[in-house]
Design a protein around this nucleic acid. Structure first.
Lengths: 118, 118
DNA sequence: GTAGACCTACTAATTTATTAGTAGTTTGAA
DNA sequence: TTCAAACTACTAATAAATTAGTAGGTCTAC
């Protein structure tokens, strides 16, 4: 299974949100203190090698985007949380958030609709 | 905010589940290839220094348990997932799992009860 | 009392992750 | 055309994380 380091994960979050990005976009999106351009370029190259980003040459610079089926990584992380914190129980997970979230009646209705739609 | 490395997180998961543990329990619970006893001892010591584990001397060996209010760490991780993968939307999160989980009617009923209980 | 198992504290080596420098290329504006 | 900005590839230094060795203490079984 693909494993990402903290920095790598942080970069992936950005690229996911942007759908595709140049190095400079990633640097831009990173919080202060921003790492060196080449630092990001190195990380991105590693991510390409790991097979989680692909690059496309636009003009003479590379644009990066997530490899399509990389959703598996999301699934794993999400599943991990369910297992780690909720004994793999979806109802427990929902109960947790429901308590935290202080839902409005509208939201409740929406959730119930979601649950009932198979 | 407290940050844990992968190994540290892995150890915390074990101690959480066991409620309290000796080093040997942790080594036991770790998957192959099991790290050296002293390796775990070192990590545990770091975790004590970070304030996420506390130790109690039982006989002449230390037993470790999570510091009580360390639930904050869980909260953060859980919240992170919601933010990272569901644009901070609880309904989106529920929708995601509801689709994955193939709920039975009983489970649906249970979830609806959870959602409606304020 | 001594051998073996297991613990401790301390230290340090190794590995992995992160950072960024150098040097050379392209592009566009003055 | 030449300067500056921004990119590339390549390399290497630094920092952080992980691993485990050494030496010494305690307990238990023989």
């Amino acid at each position: 299974m693909i494993e990402l380091t903290k920095r790598e994960d942080q970069i992936m979050q950005i690229v996911w949100k942007l759908k595709n990005a140049f190095i400079r976009d990633i640097v831009e999106a990173l919080p202060e203190p921003k790492p060196h351009y080449n630092t990001v370029a190195t990380l991105v190259k590693i991510l390409v090698k790991k097979g989680v980003l692909k690059s496309e040459l636009i003009g003479n610079t590379h644009q990066y985007s997530p490899v399509d089926d990389f959703d598996a990584y999301r699934e794993k992380q999400i599943g991990d949380i369910k297992e780690k914190f909720f004994e793999n129980s979806f109802p427990k997970l929902v109960a947790h958030f429901a308590k935290k979230e202080k839902l409005t009646d509208d939201e409740r209705a929406e959730l119930i609709k979601i649950i009932n739609s198979k």
